[in-house]
Simulated assay, not measured.
Amino acid sequence: MTTLYALHEGEAGGARARCDIIAKACARAGIGFRALDSLTCDYLNLPRLRAGDILFNTGRGSVRLETLLWREDIGTFRTCGARWFTNGGDTTAYCAMLSRDGFPAPRTCHRLPASNENLPAIVESLGGFPLVIKAGDGTLGIGVMIVESMRSLRSVLDFLRTTGREFILREYIAPHHLARLVVLGDSVIGSLKYAIHEDDFRGLPYREGGQQMRFGPDIEALAIAAGTACGHAFTGVDIIIDQAGQPFILEVNPPSNFVALETDMGIPVGDMIVEYLMDDARRKSR
């Protein structure tokens, strides 16, 4: 019997809720389910996946475990063809990929300048203040900062350089809409508009004022293309739509969080995930 192996890193990213949804979908589909916690599993006695099994990394971590378990004839959302995987938690790496490939995105300095010497020229090239600083490993808006003056920028950068973390510096775009589109394969299976608090500039979690919203075929096609370019078949693509209606990709999140879509919106994402991965496993194991 086909078994789906769901990887998670402790309780990060609502792992328990994600695994519960997938376990129930596997039961409905008549396949086996096994959750593996990359923080506590026995790396000397890992399971050996068989042709036609499924490997689903449900969050951003567990990439070492995913690399150890991967084989060519199993179902997976990875489409990049790599035999090893890097940390999917650094969404700024996907920003660089999309910039390289010409996708519409805010103007970006993909690494903080090593000194403050050329800051005026950098600020001008990004369109002036305010500017946005984004940490590579942030989530739920944590690590995204807005800077509105040169003296603030200088002092903030002086500190950030001491942290040893990766950051990018970006143009600020005033939003008309801040959207999340969830892409599965070549379809958008759910989309929502984030609310923004009047005293903030970041999108709030869906349960804090978000609403379902469709954004039209052009923006859906852009989201699908972005997910494909990032080598993953199940992504959450965040897009900011400016006051003139122009879309800009903020980031791609592989895999997308899907708990709210399932539990709050009534979209059977768990069943969709399992069906997609079963089809992928059958195709690869022929």
Rank of each mutant, 00 (worst) to 15 (best):
V274G: 01
F33Q: 01
L204F: 05
L46Y: 05
N57E: 08
G231W: 13
E66W: 05
P217C: 06
V156Y: 11
R202D: 05
T3V: 15
I21R: 00
D200I: 08
T86V: 14
A226D: 03
A281E: 01
A229W: 07
A179W: 05
I168C: 08
G164P: 03
M1R: 10
G52Q: 08
I239R: 01
G30R: 04
L4W: 09
T162N: 05
F129V: 09
T163P: 02
I239A: 03
G30H: 03
A221K: 12
P47Q: 08
V237R: 00
T40K: 09
L181S: 06
V237A: 00
R286P: 01
S187M: 11
A51W: 08
L250K: 04
I249W: 03
K134M: 11
F234M: 01
G88D: 14
R207I: 12
T40W: 02
D186W: 09
G14Y: 06
E66F: 08
L55D: 05
G81P: 00
L119C: 08
T235C: 15
Q246G: 00
Y206R: 03
T58N: 13
E166S: 15
D73S: 12
L7M: 10
G245H: 07
T40D: 03
S191F: 06
F77Q: 06
P130Q: 08
G14P: 06
A23W: 02
G141T: 13
G141R: 07
R50L: 14
D137R: 15
I173Q: 02
N253Y: 10
G245E: 10
E262V: 08
